[in-house]
Design a protein around this nucleic acid. Structure first.
Lengths: 244, 244
DNA sequence: GCCGCGTTTTGATCCTGATCAATCTGACCC
DNA sequence: GGGTCAGATTGATCAGGATCAAAACGCGGC
């Protein structure tokens, strides 16, 4: 029996080739041949309960992680104790690449709901990607997109007003939900107003107030953590308008 | 004559192995064997005059660039025309990695003074790094550090007050200058107040006012573009203090 | 030397979002 | 059911930085 045909149940269950997220995640755009090599690499998974950390700033770096299910936030903290949310992550997203440069993680990443991640040992990823061009290229793309994403956040923090930031935030979430097969207009926020505020450089009261204002203007409807986007075009209009 | 011994003058001149920046740049930490492979890759240079763009948002991506001499800024612009400076780059820095993910550059990068960059064809970098483990690892580290750097800027924009941002900015420049063998306390800014403000999410008047205030407090001395840091500890104290 | 222009500095005023504080909601527990 | 507690909403006031405006500086060109 050829070795390639020996596949245990566990492997099948964790295999990228059978994963519904493969078109969003690391295997994106790879041939089924190439994905088979990934399957060997991504063999362990890890559950993280709501509130627990996947890794903390300063932890030794060894693996990157792909979200299988659930929702995460990343945050960094300054010497003087303030911390800031630097990103929210959902299924298919890759986390942990901040640790490659120094061999230590540079942020804290915690689950906002019970979650499961695929563990990708980084040393082995480098080994395998050295021989599989498609995989190497794909990994570089993932890192590059992270850089571009961060620059988008810098843009948001540096040059948008509070309403624009919230509108951009909701539209971004909406897009990412729809890419994962969920409703673009109807979803539950996994994070608190405080966490949204931290991410957007606003105070939680401001976030709450603007949600209420958006609701009064019939752009969205809010009920605690549940959001329904009523007027996408209206939100886009808010994002694009000059201050004043 | 063995091929390895055939080195033209041009190659020598552009070689990483002879470059004074090699401990800051892509070759950082590589063995001299490994650097020789890089030499083959990094064979062309490009001059960019003050004010000219190295690449623009939307340009087809083909290479990344290492700064040999000079000074650059990167900026992105929103649909509605506002643009924001996302970073300043100095010798040894690698630019252009934003383009890998989509095969198109995602920001504009322009020279703030007459500059020279080493052109690193990305396809060839991937090829060579597939066989040279150290180079592959090093490139991943460079990308990862870019991600961590961007998160630092997000922190700055999202949770610091104007004075803290300026103090952090000056201390960061100082550190980077000293790593390149320049004075940590005495330097010329290559960018305008407006560009600093754009980067820090402040208006140019605010930047100017805070420079003046720092001068009144004997933390720095400013004369147009020339900065002398007088009290590093004082600047650090400003960075670390709670709002109030 | 003088002029013109881009950049910087400084002043006066305004407004957005922060801060302080009180109330409300919903989930969970006994 | 009542009690508790974290999170969310709403109101009143404050202040940091934006905006508008004018003057000063420095540099290149003639």
């Amino acid at each position: 029996m050829p070795e390639a045909a020996v596949v245990t149940l566990v492997q099948l269950k964790t295999a990228c080739s059978g994963c519904s997220l493969r078109e969003l995640c690391l295997p994106m755009g790879l041939s089924s041949e190439e994905i088979k090599h990934l399957d060997q690499l991504v063999s362990t998974r890890k559950r993280v309960k709501r509130g627990e950390s996947l890794y903390r700033s300063g932890d030794a770096f060894g693996s990157i992680y792909a979200i299988r299910s659930g929702f995460f936030k990343s945050s960094t903290l300054t010497e003087d104790g303030r911390d800031q949310v630097t990103g929210f992550h959902m299924p298919g997203d890759i986390m942990g690449m901040d640790g490659i440069g120094t061999e230590k993680h540079a942020c804290n990443t915690a689950a906002l709901e019970d979650s499961e991640v695929c563990v990708i040992p980084f040393g082995r990823l480098e080994e395998i990607s050295a021989s599989i061009r498609g995989l190497q290229r794909q990994f570089h793309k993932v890192m590059s997109r992270e850089i571009v994403r961060d620059q988008g956040v810098m843009m948001l923090l540096g040059s948008m007003r509070a309403e624009e930031r919230l509108a951009a935030f909701l539209l971004n979430l909406s897009q990412r939900f729809v890419a994962r097969g969920y409703s673009p207009s109807d979803f539950n926020l996994r994070m608190t107003r405080d966490e949204i505020g931290s991410f957007l450089g606003l105070k939680l009261e401001t976030v709450s107030r603007i949600f209420s204002r958006f609701q009064d203007d019939h752009l969205i409807s809010v009920q605690q953590k549940h959001i329904r986007i009523v007027d996408v075009a209206g939100l886009k209009r808010i994002m694009g308008q000059e201050p004043g």
